[in-house]
Design a protein around this nucleic acid. Sequence first.
DNA 1: CTTGACATAGTAATGATTACTAATTATCTC
DNA 2: GAGATAATTAGTAATCATTACTATGTCAAG
Lengths: 216, 216
Amino acid sequence: MKCFRMTNQREVILEEIAKYKGHPTADLLYERVRKKLPRISLATVYRNLEILSKAGKIRKLEISGRQKRFDRELEEHNHICCVQCHRIDNIHIAPEQMLASGSEQKTGYKIFGWRVEFFGICPECQEKNAANAKKQKGAVRLNERQLKVLTALKTCGKPCTGRDIAAVTSLEPPQVRCQLSALKKKGLAVSPARCKYKITKAGKIACECKENECDG
Amino acid sequence: MKCFRMTNQREVILEEIAKYKGHPTADLLYERVRKKLPRISLATVYRNLEILSKAGKIRKLEISGRQKRFDRELEEHNHICCVQCHRIDNIHIAPEQMLASGSEQKTGYKIFGWRVEFFGICPECQEKNAANAKKQKGAVRLNERQLKVLTALKTCGKPCTGRDIAAVTSLEPPQVRCQLSALKKKGLAVSPARCKYKITKAGKIACECKENECDG
DNA sequence: CTTGACATAGTAATGATTACTAATTATCTC
DNA sequence: GAGATAATTAGTAATCATTACTATGTCAAG
């Protein structure tokens, strides 16, 4: 993620997602946004949906079907899909209650079945990760803020300023500057120009390593 | 579905799906089948995967991701997907046990989360269906075999023989012929030529109506 | 007021899938 | 068995959703 600018186009896209009671597809949003911004490009809609979902402003749904759908609701929830008209609604039930018939009354749907997809790390990858972790014992310790800043630096790739990082991490610029110099000391970031910081190879490794720890 | 012929191409495709421990995509299968049938077309692979899954010989997976995947396993089951290497494995656990940590040992996966998609009929469609059902009270009664045959006639569309129907319904030709004449009596099928049967408009409606009953 | 990063509109390219075509092959009927 | 009929095929074109590219435009900092 780079410096994030809330442009007019992005504001309108966000508005339309928020307004639409459901889970719009990119082309449906394009049609709606076009009424307010007739000169907007379909590519802009796609690009911004991607950027907004990476920035955590919206959620990209990974559901079956050809087209991707987007959701203004950020908290974790599941979906229910009408097999006849193909509309998709949110369903807020705990997995324990899935089988309880009560859930049917809640949504008004007549439920036929469900499909569960689990996510995890397969045995082979777990082994690989363990081996990698072993290689670099004495791994760097990062606090939460440092990890945030480092992750932002990594996703950015290019050199960026403390202000840039602040914009995407929900941290204050002074906090960011403080962490940046700490990261520089540890060799995880370098400053190729005044006020510009860039992640190092070591920084990337440290970052990926943290990502894979996953013992939450 | 029309008259179903088990061609060499289809046999090889089925073999390869059965051989492959996992959930191959169309292009992966194409690569493998090509080693045995170098002149086969990618379109043939796609077409036959579609036909075979409609005929119930294989299962088309509706999972997230760009490409569709196919599965030789016909019974209902769910999937687990490695977020690192993206392989997909079967997971045979009852929903009640989903949360039990035991399931992790079974697959060897370290599970982070899951996504549930429910299927059903939304309140609006239920109303629509109820209204339709009301219109045609005194609806025809069909036994299981008749419904099978009628469904096959419907998916075929064109006139077809009893043998054609037998091939796709796992019924014996004499059984099919018997049901065909019953359907003809009820006005749900007509015989435009000797030994050829075709579904009527009434037949289609009766078939759709049965499909929507869904009180299993 | 220049500089450089970010955004944009418009369009081309991509990847997965589906539709179309003419040719081939199997099956049925006589 | 010959001819009619229908299913299937290989090869290719078209489609659909999405992404990449390109030139141009905008904004904020120094």
